[in-house]
Design a protein around this nucleic acid. Structure first.
Lengths: 209, 209
DNA sequence: ACCTGAACACCGTTCAAGT
DNA sequence: ACCTGAACACCGTTCAAGT
């Protein structure tokens, strides 16, 4: 055996990433193993370690693609709404919906940990930032007087909140009280937070700061 | 070998739960394996399966104890504050602090999934509900006119939000923008949400509903 | 009756050996 | 140069066999 040269290094990486993503959506996180990916693309396990440092690196590449898909979904959901509050609500709904539709992909993005406490690479972190950053423009519109730091802080607080409701919903820790839909919780959280944010800002401006 | 009778079934379970909890806090989630637990308590792996159905059941027992510790920490943090808003803020801070101090235990509570899609037992779910339920009394005090359903919904929305900030903080997905402390985000989210909740309620009462 | 030890079917990762 | 196959050090889980 040895030496087939059917595919370039880059092609093998691509095949592996696609196969891994498919395994996760079809059989969940536990369904993704190095041996299964290798089998799916017609190579031996060893070959995988010729093109990836380890399984973590492969998972990271799957995650960054799913993160991009999530970003696209959220962006597109917000696009038809020029007003800040409807746009932010649309963002939140799209975020939750992506989680509901691609639960395993969603969970792998946010729950995967690097082994041995390794750090996530910058090209992954920047995708996370890009997603969070989406909130800043509408919030700035909502608070025209606010400083950049205030807006960034509000964006993180609100997105963190949205994320939490999604996490609890996807792990079935919220469905205990029946008739509570995650959709409603999300809207409740976002609307009241934004109301509070605006009234706080009004109070500040009135006080002459 | 065989037949030692050093410990009763119940004693072995107890030893295993304590050893498992210790392994997690000392070596993280990956440090918890059936073989290591067995070795730690001076038995063979097989014995573990005489007293637990599988690893999931053992993990569940560790989780329910950590969940109780979390509940105690949150309760005690809120106790000195009779006013609803300071109490809720104290709850949130204690929740985050527990996560920061016992990160692996915290993550195992919320990220562990049952294998083969098995359901979590009721005695676990009820501990989760008890934790969420803590928010309801202060929120009811805050919104004296509100119906029970409104209060329950607000409690879940707010706790979900708090949870999300903690999750992102503990997975290092928030620290990207430096100088953003999770503490501040938490307070930002809770304060503005509660402000918004109250002003909404005032509007309702003024409208005569 | 209680516990062991070995087995089974898996893992991730490495690397000498083949073409 | 590229890829394999086997090995290593692990897993969770089961169960015949020993005392």
């Amino acid at each position: 055996m040895g030496r087939r040269n059917d595919h370039s290094r880059e092609e093998i990486r691509e095949l592996a990433i696609l196969a891994a993503a498919k395994l996760v959506t079809e059989h969940g996180l536990a369904g993704l193993t190095a041996r299964k990916v290798a089998t799916a693309i017609g190579y031996t396990v060893g070959s995988l370690y010729l093109v990836f440092k380890n399984l973590d690196e492969l998972i990271l590449h799957v995650n960054v693609r799913n993160l991009d898909a999530l970003y696209q979904a959220v962006t597109q959901a917000g696009a038809p709404h020029p007003e800040p509050i409807p746009r932010l609500l649309a963002f939140g709904r799209a975020y939750l919906q992506f989680g509901l539709e691609h639960t395993d992909a969603w969970r792998m993005i946010f729950e995967h940990r690097m082994q041995h406490g390794a750090e996530r690479p910058p090209w992954f972190e920047s995708q996370v930032n890009r997603l969070f950053g989406l909130l800043e423009a509408p919030i700035q519109t909502l608070l025209p007087q606010a400083e950049q730091a205030t807006v960034v802080q509000a964006a993180h607080a609100l997105w963190g909140g949205v994320h939490g409701i999604c996490v609890l919903c996807l792990s079935d820790k919220l469905t205990v009280v029946k008739a509570i839909s995650a959709q409603d919780l999300l809207e409740n959280l976002m609307r009241h937070y934004l109301t509070g944010l605006q009234s706080e800002q009004r109070a500040r401006v009135a006080a002459g700061d």
